[in-house]
Design a protein around this nucleic acid. Sequence first.
DNA 1: TATTCATATGAACGATTGTTCACATGAAGG
DNA 2: CCTTCATGTGAACAATCGTTCATATGAATA
Lengths: 120, 120
Amino acid sequence: MSTDKEAYQCDYICVHEDVVAHVKANMPGEDALFDLSELFKIFGDSTRIRILYCLFANEMCVCDIATLLNMTQSAISHQLAVLKRSKLVASRRDGKTVIYALADDHVRRIIDQGMEHVSE
Amino acid sequence: MSTDKEAYQCDYICVHEDVVAHVKANMPGEDALFDLSELFKIFGDSTRIRILYCLFANEMCVCDIATLLNMTQSAISHQLAVLKRSKLVASRRDGKTVIYALADDHVRRIIDQGMEHVSE
DNA sequence: TATTCATATGAACGATTGTTCACATGAAGG
DNA sequence: CCTTCATGTGAACAATCGTTCATATGAATA
C-alpha cells in the first residue's frame, strides 16, 4: 500500500508534503546545526560547567580555579583551552599568570536557562 | 614562599577568602551540576538537535523522523529513547505507530538561546 | 643567563558515545 | 493464530572525550 516515491515509509501515517516543506524550511542549515551541537557539547561536562560558575563570580587565574575545584592545573588548563576555542572565555596575561574571564553574558544566560529546566 | 595550608597554590595571585566564599556560595550543589551537564550533553549531538527541530514543527512518528532526516529507524529510535529518558520529548501510542512530541516549551527556549550564540 | 614559577601541550589511557545489525515486542488485520 | 508492520533494544564497533603524566614555553627575578 506504499506509494512509489516513499517506498520505505510507514503505511498510513505518512509525512504530508506540506509538513515536510514546513519542517525543512524551519530546519537550520547543516553548518548551524553542527555549530549548535558543538556549543552544547562544551556545556556537557561538569568540570567545564564548574569552571564557568567560578568565572561567574570573578575573573581568575588557572591556579585559582584548580584550587577551588580541587583538580590538577593541567586538567583545568586543558578545559580552559576548550572553552577559549569556543569563545566562551577570554584570557589576558598578567605577568606570569594568565587571567581568565567570561567572554560575554550569553554564557551565563544559556547556563541559567538550562538550570531552570533541571531544577523543576 | 607558600603558606602551609595552600602549599600547591600560586604565590602572589592567591584566592582570597571572601572570593572563595562567594564562589562556593553561588556554586550549585554536586547533583544540580551533574544534572545540568547531563542535560547539555543531550543537546550536544546534531542528530538529537535535528530530531527536536522536527518536533518543533509537528508531532511525528519514528518513521516520519527517520525519513525526514534520512537515517535508519533504529538510530532514531535509540535517540528518541535518550530524549524521552531526559523528559525532553513525550510519546503516545496510536495503533501501531508511536507519536513523539516536545515535552514542554523549555526545550525550544534552550535551543533558541544556543542558536543565538552561534549565529553572531 | 640560570632558576623559578605559572601555564600550555602532546601522548596515552580508560571511559563514554552514536550507529549498525540482528532480533524482540506488540498491535492490527486477515 | 499467523502474518505484517512500526517500533524497541541488546551487543558490538569505531570514534570521541577527559584526565594524567611528562615535558615545553615563557615571564619574572636573582
